[in-house]
Design a protein around this nucleic acid. Structure first.
Lengths: 146, 146
DNA sequence: GCTGTTATTGCAAATATTTGCAACGATATT
DNA sequence: AATATCGTTGCAAATATTTGCAATAACAGC
């Protein structure tokens, strides 16, 4: 159980209540080594609690994203996927054509992010970064060029 | 009527058929100076055609994004918004907390994008770039720091 | 530990988006 | 201009996500 406890404590300090549902959802997300959909999290929790509601899962995930503890990403099939912030310490290169996501390092990007911070006051969070474009496979068959 | 015709011709060359529905959707998107939701496009087309279906709007928009002629963005209320590629020649800085989108220039980013191209073979498209993080307003009230 | 306050949940309904399939119609061919 | 082909549409149903509201339960103060 890595950082679930830390996340829970932080949420409490922010004034949010720690419910069994939230604990389970955070734990599930933190223990998963892949991105999960709300539906998948809901299903994984069924054995532990008959009554947890899918809407609660969605609301908790929204809260985690809003507070910066999780990342929301559009999956290959167009559905939303979620992961803990720690899980995603890399760039996501998402192909606009086939929808696949490729991981990438973000070293070299920092100076530009600092420039954005200075110029616009906007603090970009690298854990959440997604770049859209064409993957190697799809570049070949594509006629639209910049 | 700026580049509607060009887009239509390109689509035709790619083997897609040019239907009145597609023409109207592309024209609507190209003439709008803001991002539009599928529902908004559908409503704007009602006077011109009683029969155009919302599912067709969604499918056409998906096609345009997939082929690189449009950008899909998550709006402040969580709904998808669309714009033509030309409309969005800037970065989108999206606040994970309040959901607002701020435009920003992307000069200074090119070297990093070229690095991604060389290293991963992935062609990032600047027209589609969205950075997630905290806006100036929300930074202040936020306790979670990197 | 009990009580009050108020955030959170479950439920059901609303809304948003996607998909299967038969009918239609844009294009290429003749 | 008529015909065949097969991508596209409309419709309805399926699926995904959000939201209103009353009931519940976490937490602070006693």
């Amino acid at each position: 159980m890595p950082h679930c406890h830390t996340t829970l404590q932080s949420l409490r300090q922010l004034g949010f209540r720690i419910t069994p549902q939230r604990e389970m959802i955070i734990e599930t997300l933190a223990h998963s080594d892949t991105h999960l959909s709300a539906e998948e999290i809901h299903q994984r929790l069924q054995p532990r609690s008959k009554t947890i509601n899918l809407a609660t899962v969605y609301r908790t995930l929204d809260l985690l994203v809003e507070q910066g503890y999780a990342t929301r990403l559009i999956g290959k099939d167009g559905k939303f996927l979620y992961a803990t912030r720690q899980h995603s310490r890399h760039l996501h290169l998402v192909c606009r054509k086939c929808g696949r996501t490729y991981p990438a390092e973000y070293e070299g990007l920092q100076p530009f992010l600092e420039h954005l911070k200075k110029t616009y006051g906007f603090q970009v969070e690298v854990e959440h970064l997604t770049f859209s474009g064409l993957c190697p496979d799809c570049s070949q068959s594509n006629l639209v060029t910049s």
